[in-house]
Amino acid sequence: MRNFLKLIIGLGSLTGFPALCFAGDALTLKSQYKRPLEIKFPKTAPYSPQLVTLGKMLFFDPRLSGKNNLNCASCHNPSFGYEVPVKTPIGATLTPLKRQAPTLLNMAWVAPLFWDGRAETLEEQAAGPITHPDEMGGEFETIIKRLSKSPEYKKFFHYLFPQTGITRENILKAIATYERTIIAGWAPFDKWIEGDETAISNAAKRGFIIFNGAGKCATCHSGWNFTDNKFHDIGLEIIEKDLGRAEHESNNVFAENAFKTPTLRNLSHRSPFMHNGHLKSLEDVVDHYISGVIDRPSTSPSITNVTLSIEQKSDLIAFLKSLTAERQDVSMPILPN
């Protein structure tokens, strides 16, 4: 009987030890992934529900495009993680754009903006696609004229900006403020971080360790929003010449072919992946890091091919899928006339 107990305890400690180590690791790791509970707004654009509502209206208003046919949601579709389910979106000129639309999730915590980080603020960023001839092809003069025709818009703008009324800055401020309220929902992963052990599968839990360890993913996709807000050349095959960050940082070797690390939240809705939308699935993405990284001068020092078993790969994918929140309803505003 005593021997039997010893055997049990022995076996128990044999299997329990790595589990304990893992548990200790996981605890420290998990603390790094706690979500913020509040959205911080810049002093220049403090939160008000009226401003957010106006921003949302403008976000969905096609009158902001040159031909009244595109709105922000045309390329930042809420159903696809505020992206489009094609390699790259098609703009006002009916030709595919150079890069995929970046997600708008958790943009309140992201700066600089764009794949190449050319905008410091969301306000600045918003102006880009609206006025870009390949994208929405709008002109602010025209836009302000159009909006001024609507007594409601006029009223709203004058209510919020009694002195200035409908201006480019105010439009952009409203849109940016709205965009700051677009938050990825509470994913199973977040619930697990909060202490619900049953929220994710054991495979996902193992995948979390791989994500932080063998996969080296957390090097760039760090923190609760899974981004370091930095630019890296991840050694993707160059199909069409795109300098990336190098367009704005020409003297940095590593800026060439480098693009901003995107968040991994709501990944399941956001395929295809990468800045050019060339990887169709999460499997393709993981495969790229296992065997597809091209070593060139610009390639980020943090990026090398990683060695993962098939099980580790599937665990990692299970983890990545646990970052997707339940779908949240997005109600459409009634646009003023």
Partner: peptide
Amino acid sequence: KLLLGLEKSETIPILEIYKQ
């Protein structure tokens, strides 16, 4: 009050948190 804009603050609770 924060969400309704009745009180001024640099931060507002995330909607989901509020809902929770």
